[in-house]
Simulated assay, not measured.
Amino acid sequence: MRAEVIGDPIAQSKSPAIHRFWLDQLGLAASYDAVHVRPGELADYIAARRADAGWRGCNVTMPHKQAIIPLLDAVDPLAAKVGAVNTVVRSADGQLVGHNTDVAGFLEPLQPLLAQEHLFRMARIFGAGGAARAVVSALAGHGFTLVLAARDPARAAALLAELDPRGEHHVAPMAHFAAPTDFAFDDRHGCCDLIVNASPLGMAGQPLLALDLSHVPPRSVIYDLVTAPLRTDLITRAEAAGLRTIDGLEMLIGQAAAAFALFFGQPAPRQCDGELRAMLTA
């Protein structure tokens, strides 16, 4: 049996290393590979895999997370709500079912924080693409007021209206956060403040995320979903300012573990996370 990850580009994906590490740890006779699938090739890829009985499914990265939905037989409720599929699994009856494990992966490192009681929860999210869809869906379900910052505020507003129409959320142009501010934050005792970079800004080959830390409330948690490089400019500056940070590898491993169980029918060996992180960051 085998599974894959597809995307365009795909060479940078860490998913094969993660899944192969777990397969080796468990001694499973299975494989996991990366396949470069361009947008015009997606339908042919799915058609070919339908005829391959040993194919258990695939992870889906940019730019296919929404485009793949019409090619599937069914989509689970969470993926339908998010409007994005990052995992396709062949069911026992041969149907191809779309799932979203990004939400679970994103929330996993936040669980100790979310287990606490807060007077107020606010998240400032940067980006309005596929990753932001999972982040908005996840945090709206945990009582956060959201500020969604994007180059196109109209797109951000449409995303919020689609995913959480009853929420009292806000949009802002991304440029608003670039210049310093002298805003005096109120007493944040009992509050939960989260900053999430769900954009490609800060990724190798991309401009940096222009966020002046004067916009960040005291004791905020900074969560950068970028994985290449792992220590982004945002993470480095936040740590220097004494803020708690979560890197993109946390979400990547979390969502991969959920997908692994769907593909191979048993949980990933998470007791080996330390060894896995060391391998991925070597």
Rank of each mutant, 00 (worst) to 15 (best):
V135N: 10
I253S: 11
H170I: 00
E117S: 15
H118L: 08
K65A: 12
P165S: 14
E168Y: 01
I235T: 03
G105K: 07
A104Y: 01
S15H: 05
A149N: 08
C58N: 13
W22N: 10
G98I: 08
L146V: 03
P112H: 10
D152S: 15
P229A: 13
V216C: 11
R90F: 05
F144G: 12
P39N: 06
F120V: 03
D224V: 10
A80L: 02
L72P: 05
L71D: 03
V60K: 07
P269Q: 09
I253L: 13
G190Y: 03
V221K: 01
V88Q: 11
A256D: 11
H215S: 09
G129M: 06
A140N: 14
G127Q: 05
D152K: 12
D233R: 13
T232I: 12
T61Q: 09
G254I: 05
V103H: 10
V82N: 04
I18A: 11
V171M: 03
H215E: 02
R121G: 09
L159M: 15
L209N: 05
E108F: 01
I246H: 04
A258L: 14
N100W: 05
Y32D: 14
A240Q: 15
G205I: 06
R133A: 14
G54R: 13
H64I: 04
A179N: 08
E250N: 13
A149D: 07
A84T: 04
P200T: 02
F126T: 05
V75N: 08
D247K: 01
P63Y: 04
L146I: 15
T232N: 09
G83F: 03
V60P: 04
P63N: 10
R56S: 13
I125C: 07
R188Q: 15
K14Q: 13
L148N: 09
I222V: 15
G274A: 14
F260V: 11
A3M: 05
R155Y: 00
E4S: 15
V226S: 03
G83L: 02
L276M: 12
P16R: 09
C191M: 14
A258I: 01
P165H: 12
P229C: 12
L23T: 12
W22Y: 10
A149G: 11
A3V: 06
T236A: 15
G130H: 01
